[in-house]
Design a protein around this nucleic acid. Sequence first.
DNA 1: TTGCAGGGGTCAA
DNA 2: TTGACCCCTGCA
Length: 286
Amino acid sequence: MEIFAKNNSVVIKNIKDFNPTHTFMCGQCFRWDMEDDGSYTGVAHGRVVNVSNIESDIIIKNTNADDVKNIWINYLDLNRDYNIIKNAFSNDVNLKQAIDFGGGIKILNQDIFECLISFIISTQNGIPRIKKIVSSLSELFGEKVEYGGRTYYSFPSAKSLSGIKEKDLEPLKAGYRAGYIVDAVQKVVNGDVDIYNLKNLSTSNARCELMKIKGVGPKVADCVLLFSAGKSDAFPIDVWVQRIMRSLYCGDDAKIKDIQHFASSHFGEYAGIAQQYLFYYARENN
DNA sequence: TTGCAGGGGTCAA
DNA sequence: TTGACCCCTGCA
């Protein structure tokens, strides 16, 4: 991988299968916004950067070569060859169509605590409101980071939230989710749930572990595993995915368990990535 | 303006 | 298996 740094920005040459819009708008993250020029600015790992691409070159502004090597390459999942994954799906007509549309999706490797809290907030909620709540939480408890004349806030660490009460979260207007956030913070801080060890567990054990947290059911757990614990086989099933899977593969009367089973046997170890291709395609095309 | 339905699920009975 | 849930948004 060739990396060139100059003037507080870095160019990564010759990256295949990456499109910022596909990656940041496919619903896996809540802290990236499109700029007027089509680039995306976001906060992750306590830093603000701006990401764009020109053909197969990725341009990351407000960073340096060390951060790119230590943080952003992994965050953007640039070390994985998506061509292998796409080939594994090449005999599936529906997926082929979805990949033609959103083939530039990379599954981000997000901070696991941020991902956990964000998807707890996502339950029974729309994306604009999720983004608003995550942003207020960061503004209240995160660190200020300036970039391009604007102020951003990093997502607060579990430690910095330790001891919070539901009352402290009232400004977020997160509703009943406030209690879930408090429970998650407590269990992470006191070690009841070791979220930092989930990578080393099997997907199903990691799922059970996460579901010890209030407000974390199968769907939220699978999102956390897929987007921040490297579990590509985790297949989150929300109302959209239910609709897609019933109409394309499983039939109208399929239950969630049937869909789960089908996904795992039909899509295999990359089921979660297939889910993102299908989800993005269906959401953008109704 | 007011009222109602529904939203990237989960919990508790 | 079935409501209820906190709050916001979109739409009559």
